[in-house]
């Protein structure tokens, strides 16, 4: 247990060091542009699976949280010229509140009704932002990047590193949850809510907690996106593709372990980046759809599930 923890934190530190080092030695800008997107999807998928994976409440509102993250940054920049850390923290706070509200409103719904309600919420918020002139309405808004801080040569490199930090944060939280009583409670209620309640699990409170944490992280991950694109419009900030991509990555990786969404996001995110560059963004969506269908049909427990099955078979082979 303890040794695992140390290994994890050493790994995280190495990862961040590598990301930082990369900003120092790589001069080509493309790896940072592409890397940012992949890191963003890793963080989204990990954050999503806290509610969607551990608790089994399939949230299609990733786009809602992401978009609200984007637009809270837009607002803060336009109104106060707030710096990036403030944008991210504020977005996290708003995301937590939003998660709480969403939870109160929808967590009593079962299965598909919950999912549909989260889609509904996305469109409603998108529509509201579309009608909000101050942040540019439907046409969108241009955003000026401030000069970059001393540590980095270039703003995109900084965003890349910031996103790497968010990934570590999200993974650490997700991992903590999985290994703690919260994770066990979520797993129990995912299996059977009534049986969980009757074993003393406060299901509603745990679901709310998962919703709040997941929401805060999703929003925080969206916040730097405004600076990354230097532009925001409701149609792309709230695009349903974020929801489906995130869901697909988590399901493809497998939600039974915190590393599943990471694997799925790296796999699908990298593929998508390559396809966008080499072929077209339509093919990209096609691959998303096809992979989602294939995995849901063929490997319902995702890559993690496949790996576990292989190991189990091998172990059984050894025993007999």
């Amino acid at each position: 247990m303890k040794r695992n923890g140390i290994a994890f934190w050493i790994g995280a530190a190495l990862f961040l060091a590598a990301a930082l080092l990369m900003t120092k030695v790589v001069s080509n800008q493309y790896p940072f542009f592409a890397g940012y997107v992949i890191l963003q999807f890793i963080a989204l998928a990990v954050a999503w699976s806290i509610l969607g994976g551990y608790a089994g409440y399939v949230n299609f509102g990733t786009s809602a949280f992401f978009g609200v993250g984007v637009y809270s940054s837009v607002f803060l920049v336009k109104a106060f010229g707030a710096p990036l850390p403030v944008q991210i923290l504020t977005a996290a706070a708003i995301g937590a509140l939003m998660g709480f509200a969403l939870g109160l409103l929808t967590l009593r719904m079962q299965g598909i009704f919950f999912s549909i309600a989260t889609i509904a919420l996305t469109i409603i918020i998108e529509t509201a932002v579309t009608n909000w002139r101050y942040v540019g309405g439907a046409a969108g808004i241009q955003i000026q990047r401030p000069p970059v801080s001393a540590l980095f040569d270039n703003y995109v490199q900084m965003l890349f590193f910031v996103q790497a930090v968010l990934v570590v944060l999200a993974v650490a939280i997700s991992r903590y949850i999985q290994n703690s009583w919260i994770g066990r409670g979520l797993q129990a209620l995912k299996d059977d809510e009534l049986a969980a309640e009757c074993s003393g699990v406060p299901t509603l409170r745990l679901k709310l907690l998962a919703c709040v944490i997941s929401g805060a992280l999703l929003c925080a991950v969206g916040a730097p996106s405004a600076m990354y694109l230097q532009f925001a419009n409701p149609e792309s900030a709230f695009n349903l593709n974020y929801s489906v991509s995130t869901l697909a990555m988590s399901l493809i990786g497998g939600t039974a372990h915190w590393s599943g969404p990471i694997i799925g996001a790296i796999l699908l995110g990298t593929t998508q980046q390559l396809l966008t560059v080499t072929i077209s963004s339509e093919v990209n969506v096609l691959v998303l759809g096809v992979m989602l269908v294939l995995f849901v049909v063929g490997a319902p427990e995702g890559i993690i599930g496949l790996i576990r099955r292989i190991f189990r078979n091998r172990n059984e082979g050894r025993e007999s």
């Binding site: 089994g56 697909a248 093919v283 759809g289 989602l292 269908v293 849901v296």
Partner: peptide, 29 residues
């Protein structure tokens, strides 16, 4: 793929149909 196997068809079913919807969208495009 879902009903026969029983367990949480709803969750995976909705993901499945979203995948199908995306595929149809792209094919039309």
């Amino acid at each position: 793929t879902f009903e026969k196997r029983g367990s949480d068809a709803g969750v995976r079913g909705i993901a499945f149909f979203f995948g199908v919807a995306f595929i149809i969208e792209v094919l039309i495009i």
